[in-house]
Amino acid sequence: MSSVLFDVSGPKTRRRSLIASIVSLAGIAAILAWVILTLAAPRQSSGITLPGSFDRSRWDIFTDPSVWRTIGEGLVGTLRAAAVAAILALVIGVLFATLRTAGRRWIRIPATIALEFFRGMPVLLLMLFILLASSWGTFWAVVLGLGLYNGAIIGESLRAGLASLPSGQREAGLSLGLSRLQTKTYIEFPQAFRQMLPVIVAQLVVLLKDTSLGYIVGYNELIRTTMNGLGAFYGNRYLLSLFLVTLAIYLAVNLSLSAIARRLARRRGPRRPGRGHRGAPTGSLSRTAGFPREPENSAVE
């Protein structure tokens, strides 16, 4: 505890902090225990006694390999949609950033309007739009919806990256005789991309999470496979266990991706002192030091 906000704590404060710690730990443990015991207790429902949530009869389907195979298919569905949509989003993002920073107004203004439109719309609505207005099926509805929405957001952050470059970079490119487009592709974009990499990766985690919207538009991704498919097949008895397994899978995948994002942020975060942070010391007040703002925060949900 070496925060600047406090004096270095003496024995009395340390004891008090220890007591507070133990009390709150006990409180949290009590709440958790209550939840677990309530779940584990058998429940009366319209005359029949249901076994507790952790009873064998509510988990036995998970010994069946075919259940895991189905879950695997769902996971593959999620990952496939996420992978295709991520590539699409990156391409669209670069395209948007190029068009939005174009020299000509008749390119720049329509691009800005389109970008604001896609950014301000719910992804779900975008998916429904594509599903109903085209006949490409649910997979492409999910992929195109996610690609357009996240492409708009990545485009916007790339544009911020381009804007944060020193203007000398562009001027140097132009003075070497490169065209505007060449300057952009060979000099500006690589640097902007590098600058914004943490934000982009964080946005891709959001994209992966959002593939779950396929549940609503009818694409067979993880949630639809486990909760609708398996849930309906084996009955409501298994709903909670299926939910917990799905949750565990999502957490495992997303937390590992977030960890990669954080590592990237640490390794190649913006080096220049951020604009608007005048003065050298930009430490932080709590122990989780590092960046003025963590990359996940810049990701738009």
């Binding site: 999470k209 709903l239 999502y250 957490l251 977030s258």
Partner: peptide, 17 residues
């Protein structure tokens, strides 16, 4: 790190269950 769909699914289907 949990998708909103899953959170809502929990609240709408699993809680009543």
């Amino acid at each position: 790190n949990t998708p909103l769909t899953l959170v809502l699914f929990f609240c709408i289907f699993v809680l009543p269950n």
